[in-house]
Amino acid sequence: MPDRRVDSLDLARRDAGLSQDELWLRYFALGGMMPALELEAMCLGALTAGADDAEHVVHALNERFSELGRNHPVPYDDDDAPPT
C-alpha cells in the first residue's frame, strides 16, 4: 500500500477542481455507498473507510483527472498487486 498523507484524497479533490459535493456525486454515481459527510471525513483522514470504498473514491477522482487529460495520478491501494 503506498504511503499517503492523511488528507491526500482531499488534496487530490482540490487539484481536480471538485467541490466536496461534486466528488460525492461522482462517487455515488459509480456505486459508492458512503454518505457525503463520511466521504468528506475520509478524504480529510478523519475516518478510515473500507478498502473497497477508498478505492472507489480514488477511481472517481482519477476519472475526473482523465477528463482533464491526466492519466490516473491518484495511486490505487492495489497498485502493487500482481496483474490479473
Binding site: 454515481a29 459509480l30 456505486g31 473500507g50 478498502a51 473497497d52 478505492e55 472507489h56 477511481h59 482519477n62 476519472e63 482523465s66 492519466n71 490516473h72 490505487y76 492495489d78 490479473t84
Partner: peptide, 20 residues
C-alpha cells in the same frame, strides 16, 4: 460484491474507459 467492483475498476483503468 467488493470483488466484482474491484474487477470492474481494474478493467476500467486498464482500458482507460469510464466505469459507466
Amino acid at each position: 460484491a467488493p470483488t466484482a467492483r474491484a474487477a470492474l475498476r481494474r478493467e476500467s483503468r486498464r482500458t482507460s474507459q469510464p466505469l459507466r
